[in-house]
């Protein structure tokens, strides 16, 4: 029975153009989000490189200045900025302290658009732990980024819902359930097999499109096989969770539309609302705690 199910399910999916549609959709979504993630990481890296180059340039000028001082030539710099003093060096020629981006950083923007990626610590000055936000438009932060994590966390469950909400109910609605009932297989078992097959095909499509996308964008996933496999594992487990929900709803549910609405309600609950947690942030207290320097 399983082999029949396997064969006809594949035929069904191919003929109803589900596989073709899903492949194109996944490729588009993964492609666009990976591009966005890569752009963000590239900008971040370019910013750090530019800052480091600037330091190098300044160092050249500083060395020239030191050279002239050593030779006893008059210099035009103010006396407290002359780098023969360690304090002047520490204050006027700071180094760069940067957080290097990890190879998988393009997958999720997370809080990376909020925080600064490099600072220039000086001898004097404020504690960097006080303010480490980056200069961005808050509208940007409000809408967030269209990254791979968004596609996986928000959109993939919706694809799964669209792909599986009517597995049983459509048989009912088309009148083919009676035919099915005459087959030597329990209805639970049948739904389980059918959904497992869909899970298998969707996982295969997701992994394949992810590989293709990474290939197109020149992401060397082979060299970071471990994190790549970890991400694949994460995605597949997440998909399994949604397919299990779909399985339960299919068994319990009634009409196709009813199932779709129940699953959608679960999506809203898990993706949008479950992250709501009580938080009372002290906005203004922080700046007050920032004690004033005494002259």
């Amino acid at each position: 029975m399983f082999s029949y199910n396997f064969k006809y399910e594949l035929k069904l999916l191919l003929r109803s153009k589900w596989i073709q549609l899903l492949s194109i959709l996944l490729l588009l979504l993964f492609g666009f989000s990976t591009y966005n993630g890569k752009e963000k990481v590239a900008k971040r890296n370019a910013d750090v490189v530019a800052a480091k180059n600037k330091v190098k340039e300044n160092d050249q000028m500083m060395l020239q200045l030191l050279d002239s001082i050593e030779k006893g030539m008059p210099v035009s710099a103010s006396r407290w900025t002359i780098p023969t003093s360690p304090m002047a060096l520490g204050n006027y020629h700071p180094r760069i302290a940067a957080v290097a981006s990890q190879p998988m950083a393009f997958v999720a923007t997370g809080q990376a658009d909020l925080f600064t990626h490099y600072v220039k610590p000086k001898v004097t000055g404020d504690d960097f732990a006080l303010n480490f936000t980056e200069m961005t438009s808050p509208v940007q932060l409000l809408f967030g980024s269209f990254d791979l994590a968004f596609v996986i966390v928000y959109l993939l469950p919706l694809l799964i819902i669209a792909f599986s909400y009517n597995v049983l109910s459509s048989e009912k609605e088309n009148g083919s359930l009676r035919l099915l009932a005459s087959q030597p297989i329990g209805i639970q078992n049948w739904v389980l097999q059918k959904l497992s097959l869909r899970f298998f095909w969707l996982s295969a499509l997701v992994i394949l499109s992810l590989c293709v996308t990474f290939l197109i964008f020149g992401i060397d996933w082979f060299s970071m096989l471990k994190s790549f496999l970890l991400i694949i594992g994460l995605i597949v487990s997440y998909m399994l969770f949604w397919f299990s929900l779909a399985f339960l709803v299919n068994l319990w549910g009634g009409s196709s539309a009813k199932n779709a609405i129940s699953l959608l309600g679960l999506w809203v609950l898990f993706v949008l609302l479950s992250t709501v947690y009580a938080k009372s942030t002290k906005y203004y207290a922080i700046s007050n705690a920032f004690t004033h320097p005494t002259n």
Binding site: Q111, L114, N131, T133, P138, T281
Partner: peptide
């Protein structure tokens, strides 16, 4: 302007 609420919260 500094000290935004989001910078005190997690990615959630």
């Amino acid at each position: 302007a500094q000290f935004s609420a989001a910078s005190d919260q997690t990615g959630l």
